[in-house]
């Protein structure tokens, strides 16, 4: 990468580092002032505030990784990850999860799509950077593994929800077995969509096409202005 690209990416990362937590703070302010419709819908205030805080902290990971020159993701992937974070937090604080029947399911489908994309990208990286004797095989092998592994993250999310409620002693996140099974069904749909996409995409491209858009390790961030 050249100095101009590096400078531009670092500026975006700094903006994300402060901008996203600040926007979460604004949403939290609306909650603490009692102006968030999610409160009227039935979500406890502490749950909504904890959600804003948790996602504000999680949102720091990607810019910190970029600023410390460890990992850089393609802009489109970063965009959809953050769009999904805002979708989740805003739907929760606006009460849409409780007031609009399909909102929770749609949220799970979108989240599942993004998680499956991340799993697929991770497998592409493994394919490219691992020793020669380690491979996911043809595009069918990559798609099958993506499908099987990505499915589990729906279960992981439900475990996190259950763990949160067990630790807090309240029913903040779990609304019963039917809700959980509905969430898992939505997750399955999202996984199927991306698996089909991955299978189709790998028909004309290969794993290195995706892996080349991701920089990992400090050596990948070395400035090279020789092409200028």
């Amino acid at each position: 990468m050249n100095a101009a690209e590096d400078s531009r990416e670092r500026a975006v990362a700094w903006a994300m580092l402060f901008g996203v937590p600040a926007s979460m703070g604004v949403i939290a302010l609306f909650v603490s002032l009692g102006l968030a419709p999610g409160l009227d819908a039935g979500h406890p205030e502490e749950y909504l505030l904890a959600t804003c805080l948790a996602w504000a902290l999680i949102s720091l990971v990607i810019p910190i990784l970029r600023l410390t020159r460890l990992v850089s993701l393609p802009p489109i992937l970063v965009f959809v990850i953050y769009a999904n974070i805002y979708f989740y937090v805003l739907c929760l604080c606006c009460g849409l999860y409780l007031n609009v029947s399909w909102c929770g399911d749609l949220g799970h489908v979108i989240s599942s799509i993004i998680v499956t994309c991340i799993v697929f990208v991770a497998f592409c990286l493994v394919e490219v950077h691992s020793p020669e004797h380690v491979t996911f095989g043809s595009r069918g092998g990559m798609a099958a593994m993506t499908f099987l592994v990505a499915l589990s993250f729906g279960g992981v999310w439900e475990m996190i929800e259950g763990f949160t409620d067990t630790v807090s002693g309240n029913a903040y996140m779990v609304y019963g077995a039917t809700d959980t099974m509905g969430d898992l069904t939505a997750d399955l749909l999202g996984v199927c969509i991306v698996t089909l996409f991955a299978y189709t995409y790998l028909g004309k491209h290969n794993a290195s096409d995706i892996a080349s858009d991701i920089r990992i390790g400090r050596s990948a961030f070395e400035i090279d202005d020789s092409d200028l």
Binding site: L148, V149, A150, S152, G155, L188
Partner: peptide
């Protein structure tokens, strides 16, 4: 992950 993933269609 594969084991847990195989459970999910079961719950569905």
């Amino acid at each position: 992950f594969i084991s847990m993933g195989m459970l999910v269609p079961g719950y569905v």
